[in-house]
Design a protein around this nucleic acid. Structure first.
Length: 421
RNA sequence: GGAGAGAUGGCUGAGUGGUUGAAAGCGCUCGACUCGAAAUCGAGUAGGCAGACUAACAUCUGUCUCGAGGGUUCAAAUCCCUCUCUCUCCGCCA
């Protein structure tokens, strides 16, 4: 949610923002609606005041005077009812429209139409060199007997996968490695609920704009989370945080569910784009004055994790046309994927400033004043995509996968995932 | 799933139709007393929205909010309906 006050005072800021993001929102029309709405509020409040005044007098009156007063109030009620109905319609329409407004991008965010406007910030590491024909992770994983798509498809349909044998061990190794690193950096580990109320989805900014991406449990009015960002952000909803505890850092391991609506035929097969995957997500509640420093720290933490695994990657500064509605800025971390001869997103790191905090009412006390916190989130490790990057970058000519050094101690000293044949 | 109890301000807790946004206590803030502190005394102490004023903060006025939504009434924390959540007991269950 945006700052309404700011919209009224500086509509041009939002007009520019909306244009930069390729969105279609009529700011002037919304302001007109706001004015109508406020006029109604003014009228309704006035009548209510009159009613309240009369209510105080009624018990002091008696006889005809009392009856007259009561009759007058009855009449007033009819008038009030009509106004209240009109007001609630306007309020509903207004809040629906406001919920579409995006956050305001940071000045360092490049302006661009779509993904083509994203800017490479920098590269880290070197591309691995192979003196044999590389395989993709599906070929490698299937041959090693560590992923099984066919049976997953039989049971659940497309975009589901079984991890098996050493892939399961690899997953747990990744989890242990990442949590060890994050706990050292002061993150509190959490395992959150994966079913959440609509309010949490809305508060986090995934609703209403991206609602079609998420599974709904019709019987219970709950939603399967697409990322632990949702329960993490809503964790402190309606709370006033202790300023001395900021920045509050959390890391949650959860399964994530995405419908992948609108991506028919894209990235079919393998671990890259599935309906269900496990992920460790970082989340920070930050002091607004330090938010951009904390955000760079968050990006560094993500990079530490990926660097530790020895992967080559680049950091993308995502442009206005490609960042999410709640995001003020977003970095994607794209790992080198040899079989595709290109970089693919395996993690993303966003600062949402006060956008989520305003919807979820998360504040801290600064002297006498209460201020909204800033919130930011980053992937720590999306297991499927990370595993894909590891399998492809650490393959050898025999189709084995060398286990990155740092994970070996979490796999009982195992060095290679070998073909069992 | 069955039976019962409950949901009030930061917390405990009173309040069953009319100046109750809400007693009392605790906590917190400010002040007095003190060399300082404790104790004591005094004052203050929710949020949203709209309006006035302001450079802004603040302040003032009105309004809404006693789990959520709806209803009865001139008037609802209080009466009625629906829902949600919490607790206790039974059943089932990883």
């Amino acid at each position: 949610m945006i700052d309404l006050e700011l919209l009224r005072k500086n509509p041009d800021i939002f007009k520019t923002e909306i244009k930069n993001r390729q969105m279609k929102i009529d700011v002037d029309d919304d302001l007109k609606l706001d004015a109508e709405r406020r006029e109604l509020i003014f009228k309704v409040d006035k009548i209510r005041a009159e009613k309240n005044e009369a209510s105080k007098k009624v018990p002091l009156l008696s006889g005809q005077e009392k009856q007259e007063m009561i009759a007058r109030m009855k009449n007033l009620n009819n008038e009030l009812k009509g106004l209240e109905e009109r007001l609630s319609e306007k309020e509903k329409e207004f809040s629906d429209r406001m919920s579409l407004y995006p956050n305001i991008a940071h000045e360092s965010v490049p302006v661009g139409r779509d993904e083509s406007g994203n800017v490479v910030a920098y590269f880290v590491g070197d591309k691995p060199v192979f003196d044999f024909k590389v395989k993709n992770h599906i070929e490698i994983g299937s041959a090693l007997g560590i992923i099984d798509e066919e049976r997953a498809s039989k049971i659940s349909g497309a975009r589901f996968i079984f991890l098996k044998n050493d892939a399961v061990r690899l997953q747990f190794a990744l989890i242990l490695y990442v949590f060890d690193l994050l706990i050292k950096k002061g993150f509190s580990p959490l395992i959150p609920p994966v079913l959440v109320k609509e309010k949490a989805m809305y508060g986090t900014g995934f609703f209403p704009v991206e609602a079609s991406q998420y599974y709904k449990m019709e019987l219970d009015d709950l939603f399967l989370i697409g990322t632990a960002e949702v329960p993490l952000c809503a964790y402190h909803a309606d709370e006033i945080l202790d300023v001395n505890l900021l920045p509050l850092k959390y890391a949650a391991y959860s399964t994530c569910f995405r419908r992948e609506a609108g991506s028919y035929g894209k990235d079919m097969g393998g671990l890259f784009r599935v309906h269900q995957f496990d992920k460790i997500e970082m989340f920070i509640f930050s002091h607004p004055d330090k938010s951009w420093d904390d955000y760079e720290m968050l990006r560094e933490t993500l990079e530490n994790i990926v660097k530790g695994l020895g992967l080559h990657y680049r950091i993308m500064n995502m442009c206005t046309g490609d960042i999410g509605t709640p995001n003020a800025k977003k970095y994607d971390l794209e790992a080198w994927i040899p079989s595709q001869n290109t970089y693919r997103e395996i993690a993303s790191c966003s600062n949402d400033t006060d956008f989520q905090a305003r919807r979820l009412n998360i504040k801290f006390k600064d002297g006498d004043k209460k201020r909204l916190v800033h919130t930011m989130n980053s992937t720590a490790c999306a297991i499927g995509r990370m595993m894909m990057a590891i399998m492809e970058n650490y393959q050898d000519s025999k189709g084995n996968v060398i286990i990155p050094d740092i994970l070996r101690k979490y796999m009982g000293g195992m060095e290679v995932i070998k073909n069992k044949d």
